[in-house]
Amino acid sequence: MRGAVLRPGRVAPRRRRHGCAPFLLGPVTGAGLVLRLTRRRPGGATTPMAWPAVIAHRGGAAIGPENTLEAFRAAAELGDVVLELDAQTSADGRVVVLHDTRVDGTTDGHGAVAEMTLTELRRLDAAHRLPRTGAARWRAQGLRIPTLEEVYREFPDHRVLLDLKGDRPGTEDAVWSVIRAAGAQERTLVTANRTPAIQRFRRVSAGTVPTAASVREFAVFTALGVLGLHRLYRPPFQALQPPERYKGLRVLTPALVRRAHDAGLRVDVWTVDAEADMRRLLSWGVDGIMTDRPDVLVRLVGGGAPSPDATGRPAENPAPERKDQP
């Protein structure tokens, strides 16, 4: 004890010696983490690198009534595009295609999807309220909330990017049953923001369907990339699917794209509607672009001239994008 004055008969306290334990703790902990991250995981899913770059977000929400068969048909008519959709389960366990966990956003009904049966959901007008295309054109045209089975049945040759929504128990099992029944394991990529949901899906599907990283898994990969450890990582996923920016902060960079490719992963970015942004992101090497304007992206990757959007606006000045929702 520097500067301490000892009274007669008192013995100075001995300093506790930790030896080399603190110096060994960091390396040992780090080694354990690396061993855990590099451990090979079961499952035969391969990275779908040969998929087309055009991913029709909700079927192309700026050119058709989102998440309906009508929108998917319009997207399919553009050619070889990926159909992106949102899946959740009804009260009776059927897998339906709808983004919001409530029907209020796009239909003429009210209530939670998980509390309504398929019959009740099918009574609703799926195009009553449409934030991108406007409801007037599609309202009262008989458009219904589709089931996932219907999508696979009507589009047997198209790839499907499936976003798990909702928190209803058993959703992952129900989705896997539909995918397996359709024999669509190799043409489906499943994603979910919540780590427990995507982990449950991987378990029930035995890793036979490609999946994308959850938000937490994406953060882990990004951190490992900064540390130069991404090549050692053996991730349980085959794709990264970030936005370019989130709440004003840059998420996607050319360096991240390179690191993902180094690790054998594909990179898809959402949701991009402006042609100038599409060109820039393709130059970075992204594998896919989720867009509400698949018609613009199809023309771009095919070498065509810029096209106007569904309301006549130039593609360089699209309607405002929803950056906070995939």
Rank of each mutant, 00 (worst) to 15 (best):
M290Y: 13
R58T: 02
R194M: 15
D295W: 05
G166R: 01
L148I: 03
I198N: 01
A184L: 09
A276D: 13
G105W: 12
R123F: 04
V296H: 09
A61M: 12
V175P: 00
G109A: 07
L24H: 08
E172D: 05
W270A: 01
E70R: 04
P196W: 10
T191C: 14
D163F: 04
R159P: 09
R280I: 01
G302A: 04
I55P: 06
T195S: 11
V226R: 09
A223R: 11
A127V: 03
R299L: 04
P318T: 08
V151E: 04
I145V: 14
C20H: 14
L143M: 08
Q325N: 11
D277T: 09
G60E: 14
D277M: 10
P318W: 11
R168F: 13
H230D: 03
H261N: 11
V81M: 06
P308F: 06
P242G: 08
R203W: 11
T171N: 09
Y246S: 12
E275Y: 06
A263S: 12
P169T: 09
Y246G: 08
V54M: 07
I145N: 00
V113G: 02
T106G: 04
T253L: 12
L189C: 10
E154Q: 13
W138R: 13
A212C: 07
R94P: 02
S283M: 03
G93P: 01
V82Y: 05
A181I: 00
V215W: 14
A62Y: 14
A91F: 05
V11Y: 10
E115V: 01
D309E: 12
G19V: 05
E70F: 10
L256Y: 05
E244F: 11
Q238K: 15
D309G: 06
E186I: 00
R73K: 07
A319P: 07
R250Q: 15
D309Y: 10
R187A: 06
R299C: 01
V220E: 01
L83H: 05
S90Y: 04
Y152C: 03
G44D: 13
L240G: 02
R94C: 09
V34Q: 03
H110L: 10
E154D: 05
R16T: 12
E77A: 15
A53I: 03
G303S: 07
P169E: 03
L6I: 01
G183S: 13
